[in-house]
Amino acid sequence: MKQPCAIILAGGRATRMGGGDKGLLPLGRGALLDHVIDRITPQVAATALNANGDPARLARFGLPVLADPVEGFAGPLAGVLAGMDWAARQGAETVVSVAADTPFFPCDLVPQLLLATEGMDVPLALAATPDGRHPTFGLWPVALRADLRAALEGGLRKVVQWTDAHGAATAMFPAAGDPFFNVNTPEDLARAQAMVAE
């Protein structure tokens, strides 16, 4: 299988952080997004951002900025679909999604997702820890993008509802160190700052 592309899901409304782009919040020497980009880029063939609104605000990252391809705030699956469409144009067979507010996700995320889908005709997998699945971290086959588009246009919004219907595999990661810790509140951001400082 060809190396996947990656889509960073940065389209959330960040209501608990007072609105705006969570990915632009300062963390360490850069922004939250810098940490996410640094983690995913070595694992994939190419990377893009999924965000709605004016893409110019994200220009400094030097990545393609893809808007949701369906109307209304359709949640992470719409960002996944944007990534699938873009990855298909790159000639990739799969795209990996990661969340823009989760700066410490595993450095072997992509290899483990690929491993989980070995032997599958249509490679689809979600990351998980013993606490449960992390549906914004997944491997998505571009071959299913028409199916996902139809599901979104039909009103489906829950990631696991769609992935379960397609028999998604699970890539299990240890819970130690809270690898999928995400920044939702000012307190979370303070915790992330302390983790970076360590």
Rank of each mutant, 00 (worst) to 15 (best):
F105S: 15
V159L: 01
V110F: 03
E93G: 15
P64N: 09
L27V: 12
L139I: 12
D178Y: 01
A31G: 02
A197H: 12
F104Q: 10
L32E: 08
T94A: 07
A46P: 07
G132N: 05
C5E: 08
L49E: 02
M84E: 13
L148V: 12
L63F: 10
D164C: 06
G119F: 08
P4N: 10
L115I: 00
N184G: 15
T117E: 07
T94Q: 11
A175P: 10
A82V: 04
G19C: 06
A48R: 02
G177L: 10
G12C: 03
A99S: 15
G20C: 13
A127K: 10
F181Q: 08
V80N: 03
V196W: 05
G28A: 06
A88R: 10
D34H: 12
Q43Y: 06
R157K: 12
L152S: 11
M120T: 07
D131V: 06
P130F: 00
I8M: 04
P76I: 00
E198P: 02
L25G: 06
M84R: 05
R39S: 15
A48M: 01
D101W: 14
A168R: 11
T94I: 00
F105Q: 13
G28M: 08
C5N: 09
L58I: 03
D101C: 11
L139Y: 09
V95L: 05
F105M: 15
L124N: 06
F173S: 07
A192H: 12
A87F: 03
D147I: 03
M120Y: 07
G119Y: 08
G155A: 09
K2M: 14
P69V: 11
L49A: 02
E71W: 01
M1T: 04
E118A: 14
L139D: 09
V70M: 13
D108W: 05
R191Q: 14
N52H: 07
N50L: 02
A151I: 00
D101A: 15
C5K: 05
G177Q: 13
G72W: 00
Q90D: 00
T136W: 13
P42C: 07
P64I: 03
I37A: 14
D68P: 14
V159T: 13
A127L: 03
P186L: 06
A14M: 13
T163A: 10
G11T: 11
Q161H: 11
A143V: 06
P141M: 01
R191I: 07
D85M: 09
C5P: 00
A125I: 03
D34T: 08
L189V: 13
A46H: 05
F73T: 01
Q161R: 15
P4M: 06
A146F: 01
A176H: 11
L9K: 10
T185K: 13
L25T: 03
E198C: 14
